[in-house]
Amino acid sequence: MATNTVTDEYPEIALTRRDGLKLAGLGIASVAALGMGVGGVRAVTNGAFSAGSGDPYDLWHDWHSMTGIERVVAAGALACNPHNTQPWRMIVDGDVIVVHSDPSRRMPINDASGREHLAGLGCAVENMVIAAGAAGSTSQVTLFPHGLASDHVARIGLRKDRPRQDRDLAAAIPHRHTNRGPYTSAPVDLSDFAEQSLRVDGASVLWITDKAAREKLGRLYVEATEAITADTAQSTEAFSWFRSSRGSIDKYRDGLTLDAQGLGDLALFAAKLLPAQSREDGDAYWVKATREVHTATAAAYGVIVVDDVTDRSAQVNGGRLLARMHLTATALGLGLHHMNQITERIDRDAASGNPDVFSARWAALLGRPASTGLLSFRIGHPERTPGLSPRRSLDDVVTS
């Protein structure tokens, strides 16, 4: 399995404001002409003409044609998960699926408490429950059958004995992608999420819709993003999961990519045309996008809340509910964007022994202790179709 280390081989590309204005001024025809020269080589190298196609994306396209337990396991491999680390290893034994944590896919600096890692595993568990239910199977889920300290996170026993359910959510599985682009100003009817909010024990959703509260939360997100990018260790670890070139996508088949950043078509093509830029430039782009796009266009924020964010079972259950929220949004044609900068900074400061500068304000916005706010996201009507994220093959993550 490929390790994730920071090298100069696959540096991040970030479209700066100046570059974007220059290329926008040229117009699409001029940019295309520029792509025929040296920039064209860069465009090919960075996947400008192959986005969403090839081996790293086959699972998205092939899921419809799969059947049986292979389809169920593939649903787990297509689940949402923070930073697209794909933290799972799965074993199939007849009608039983065993889900293990892969410790090599931890992000110990950005995810110091492990909440995102285990939540990602919970997302995989729930995707499989949903896919199995749509095929008429009952799923008996047992969390941490060998104790909370174990990497054996879940056992899913399948029994085909019930009417099909969750078919709308299952149909959304191959269409669910994180949408980091701008959203329209149209409000979101959150009543469509009410039923799903009750489907996972031990986790619920707190919605933040009031304009003043959204603005306060938006400012806190920006501040947390600035704190992450100012923390060299945290920024560097996050950068190690960015796959800017097609070569790195084909090699790792995980992480974040330019196609998933929510850029417009011209800006995305231009970003792939430009020479590779630095981690610092990428951080500057992220802060700017958080301020001017992500928080500026959020119709609402959702926070997955549990009794105790340090409880490993609660972390998994929170991820299970998050998967249902994301699939529901997809089925409704809504965009959903995971935004965990605030909790990442809370955990980072706690692990480093630094002053806690976010918990009190996070708690004030939640109206409950910071220790209950597990994960968060924004939601809205998207202006753009999100790009596909790369995925490892089932051969890479499943044994039988």
Rank of each mutant, 00 (worst) to 15 (best):
D55S: 13
P87R: 06
L59F: 04
R89M: 08
W63C: 04
A48M: 00
I91C: 13
E70T: 07
T67M: 02
T67C: 13
W88D: 03
G35C: 02
D62R: 09
V38G: 15
H61K: 04
D58V: 06
G68K: 03
R89D: 03
L34W: 14
S50K: 13
G76E: 03
Q86M: 10
N81L: 04
M66D: 14
M90S: 11
A51T: 02
D62E: 15
R42F: 05
I91A: 13
G68M: 06
N46Q: 07
H83A: 00
G76N: 11
I69S: 10
A75G: 06
G47E: 06
W88F: 01
M36V: 06
W60H: 15
A75C: 05
M90P: 14
P56K: 06
M36K: 07
Q86V: 00
G39M: 01
G68F: 05
G39W: 12
T67L: 00
T85H: 14
A51Y: 12
L59Q: 13
H64P: 12
A74C: 05
P56S: 14
G47S: 10
G54W: 14
S50Y: 04
S53C: 11
P87D: 12
G54Y: 11
V41G: 09
D58T: 15
Y57I: 06
Y57C: 09
V72Q: 08
G37I: 08
P87Y: 13
H61C: 02
H83M: 00
W60N: 12
W88S: 02
A79Q: 04
G39V: 03
S53P: 06
S53A: 11
T67G: 01
N84E: 04
P56T: 05
S53V: 12
P87L: 03
D55V: 13
W63K: 09
H64V: 01
C80I: 08
G40K: 07
H83G: 01
R89H: 08
L78N: 03
G39A: 11
T45S: 14
I69N: 07
S53L: 12
W60A: 12
V44R: 06
R42Y: 00
I91M: 07
D55I: 13
